[in-house]
Each structure stands twice: as C-alpha cells, then as structure tokens.
Amino acid sequence: MTTDADVSLEAGFDATIARSERIEPRDWMPEDYRRTLVRQIAQHAHSEIIGMQPEGNWITRAPSLRRKAILLAKVQDEAGHGLYLYSATETLGVSRAELTDLLLAGKQKYSSIFNYPTLTYADVGTIGWLVDGAAICNQVPLCRTSYGPYGRAMIRICKEESFHQRQGYELLMTMMRGTDEQRAMVQESVDRFWWPALMMFGPPDADSPNTAQSMAWGIKRNSNDELRQRFVDMSVPQAEALGVTLPDPELRWNEERGHHDFGEPDWEEFMAVVKGNGPCNRQRIEHRRRAHEEGAWVREAATAFAAKQRAETERAEVAR
C-alpha cells in the first residue's frame, strides 16, 4: 500500500537526486536503490579483496627488495580498498560478516578480471597499467556517485590507484629497456590481459539492462561503452610510448568520430568467466575460504583478550 507519507518521502529523494545532492545513510531511499547499491558496492569490495591474490602470487618472487616492498604496499592497499567499501556497504544496513558469507557461498560476484592467472612477473606490471588503469576509468566518475559514503570511499581509492597504475607502467618500462626476452615477456603479458581488461567495463550497453536505472539514480555516471571507449583512447598512446602492440587488428584512429575504433571482446568468454568457469574462479574462492577459516582463531583470540581486559578493568574499578 502506498500512503501519502511514502509519496512525500519518494518525492524528497527524487528532488535530492535532481539537485545532484548526495543521499546519506539515514535518509529514506527506495528499496531498489538500496539493493542496487549493496550489490554494486559489495561486488566492488569483493573485487578488491579477491584482487589481492593474482599479484600476491608474486610477492615472494619479486626480483628485488625494492619491487617486493612496492608490491607489498600495493597488495596492502587492495585490502584497504576492500575495507573502505565494506564500510560503505555497512551504512546500508548489511554486516560485513554477511557479505563475506555471500562471497564465499558464490552468491555475490567480484570482477571477472581476477579469475585470470598471473603467469609471469610481467603480469604484475600489466595489471598495474591495464587492469588498474581500467579500474581508474570506472572509478573516477564514481567519486560523484549519488550515495555519499560510496563516493567518499571512491575518492580515497582513486588517490591510491594512481600509485598502482604508475608503478605498473614503470615496471613494464624497465623491462622494455632490458633484454629481448624481457620485451617478449611484456608483449605476451599485454596480449593476455588486453581483452579481459576491456571486459572489465561490463557488457555492451544494449545488453546491460540495469544501466539506465543506475544512471537515473546517479549511481553510475557513464555507460559501459562510454567508459570502454575512454579507456581505449587513453591506452593507445601509452602502448606506443611503451613499445608494445595491442592485440587488436581492428584498432585504428577514426578521424570522423575523434575516437579509436576497436574490435569486439569475446562476450561468450566473458559470460563463461562471470558464471564461474574462468581459469581461476574455483581457486580464488577456495583460497579466500581457507584464509578466512585459518584466520578464525586469530579473531577468536582477540575477542577473548578484549573480554579479559574488560573484566580486569571492571574488577579494578570495583576494588577501588
């Protein structure tokens, strides 16, 4: 039943969105808006957490102490980004424990890019350049998203992503100045990651049924295809400066459009990975589950210690 009060609440919400003001946690919001945000922010948080694995794979084998320190800092950032985003999701009335359970049960998703393996050390550089580069394209407009806590988390994240992208590009530049073998390693890595990076923006607009509503609510600011185009246009001169070839025979500048034309990603592959059949889906979730279970005793010990401290404080106060 819709009452007059509901109508006025909804009108208030719509007016806030229309003024491009932010919705804050204690404001009334339509249930679908809340649900869409929980799904999107949780998926984003899970991506950061799962995203630690592909690069974490190389920490112990980084070629120098400098590279190891950089990689450690980067992977720690990903954990931090996950926490900023879980924190934003919790303002919508879900708990982090719930979200973790949903991830482990496969009921919430994370970005499909993290289901690809990191086969060589060059992949650390390519992920920084292309994967974090694509993430930046996606995330910069989200700093202005209509939900306040999400936008504020994105601002923090974007500041840090810039370090991620630059360290990756610098790593690749260093390898390109090395031996023929190292240059071949960079090219091979770029060949593997280019198309999955393009898929990070999601399906084509025509097949993205939620986009229109998300844009009307100001949650998303640009469509998938717009952001994909922006990413291609940004990446082409970066690839030239690096001296690598992007693996797309249809890629060329279109004077008339003022943009690069490019080929179609393999959307069947995309759907297969999203549905759980990518190269590393099972491994990623299995690893996450193991880490969560093996960390249980640490959480329990901290809880027990806190309870003991509290009891001692109370005893001391009684004695006084």
């Binding site: 800092a73 926490l83 924190s87 934003a88 901290a302 809880t303 210690f305 806190a306 401290q309 509290r310």
Partner: peptide, 22 residues
C-alpha cells in the same frame, strides 16, 4: 573518514592507523 570492526578500543586505533592513514 569511515568505520571498521575491532575487538576493543585499542585494536580499533591500530586498525584505523593501518586502514585510514597509510
């Protein structure tokens, strides 16, 4: 700046340092 979970006040400060002031 945001929120976090911790077992007690002291841990909350430590976590806050790691999460929000790197």
């Amino acid at each position: 700046v945001g929120s976090l979970h911790a077992a007690d006040d002291e841990m909350a400060v430590r976590h806050a340092r790691d999460v929000y002031t790197r």
